[in-house]
């Protein structure tokens, strides 16, 4: 369970998070939506300690995310992240990308990690690409490798930061498909996305962030179909016109 309790965050004099609170239960899929610059990425990055926060607390299964180097590394091991721009390691093959964390961070035996890495690649539909380098893959394939890399850490949750925004439209579906199947298998996920169809169909709850505050939230089906918040209505209208 991830508990975010009124966190605040400033970059210099610019305050970007004004007391964000949310609780994400185990197995829940939560979408975080909102306009550009509203602080969505910052919230995600605070959860796995890529960014520090100024006030409030975040805890994961009761363990507080604080700024000491050791505990941050523990948190990062238990909460994986998938990035907009994939960030695969270009000097390593697809399979090597996937087993990197398990072997060098989690100290899993190499043959065990390899076996599990192959399974995961099969699962994201890349059985034939183990030995390819990331640059030889399409964006959609790269993002699926990144998802396999995140899964390989056997995390408590995976944070997705606009995982399909850098993809050509025809490649979005294959990535969302993988994410949907993970959701159905009960993985805890927090997803920043502009794919409202995905949010509505796959996620349990949706949080609407604006100017560093959660101004609306609810079960995805309800809130995305009948938003009561005016800003959210505006936002959804704009997104659907894109």
């Amino acid at each position: 369970m991830i508990v975010i309790d009124s966190i605040t965050k400033s970059f210099g004099s610019q305050k970007v998070l004004h007391g964000v609170s949310a609780t994400i239960e185990r197995g829940e899929v939560v979408c975080l939506i909102g306009p550009s610059g509203s602080g969505k990425s910052t919230v995600l990055r605070c959860i796995n300690g890529l960014e520090s926060y100024d006030g409030g607390t975040i805890s994961i299964d009761g363990v507080k995310v604080d700024n000491s180097a050791r505990s941050i590394r523990e948190i990062r091991r238990s909460v994986s992240m998938v990035f907009q721009r994939f960030n695969l390691f270009p000097h390593r093959t697809v399979l090597e990308n996937v087993i990197e964390g398990p072997i060098y961070v989690n100290h899993v035996k190499r043959d065990v990690a390899l076996g599990r890495g192959r399974e995961l690649l099969d699962r994201v539909g890349l059985a034939a690409k183990h030995d390819a380098y990331p640059t030889e893959l399409s964006g959609g394939q790269q993002q699926r490798v990144a998802i396999a890399r995140a899964l390989a850490m056997e995390p408590k949750a995976i944070l997705f930061d606009e995982p399909t925004s850098a993809l050509d439209p025809e490649l979005v579906g294959e990535v969302l498909g993988v994410m949907k199947s993970l959701a159905q298998e009960g993985l805890t996920m927090i997803v920043v996305t502009h794919e409202m169809g995905f949010a509505r169909a796959v996620s349990d709850r949706t949080l609407f962030l604006e100017k560093g505050m959660i101004v609306a939230q609810g079960t995805s089906r309800e809130i995305l179909s009948n938003p009561t918040n005016e800003r959210m209505q505006d936002f959804l209208r704009r997104v659907s016109h894109e």
């Binding site: 890529l50 990062r76 091991r77 992240m81 990035f83 390691f89 964390g101 060098y104």
Partner: peptide
């Protein structure tokens, strides 16, 4: 982005 990916895997600075 490479540093972010490495960090988010829980790698230490040396690793």
């Amino acid at each position: 982005g490479q540093l972010e990916a490495a960090n988010s895997l829980g790698m230490s600075r040396t690793l």
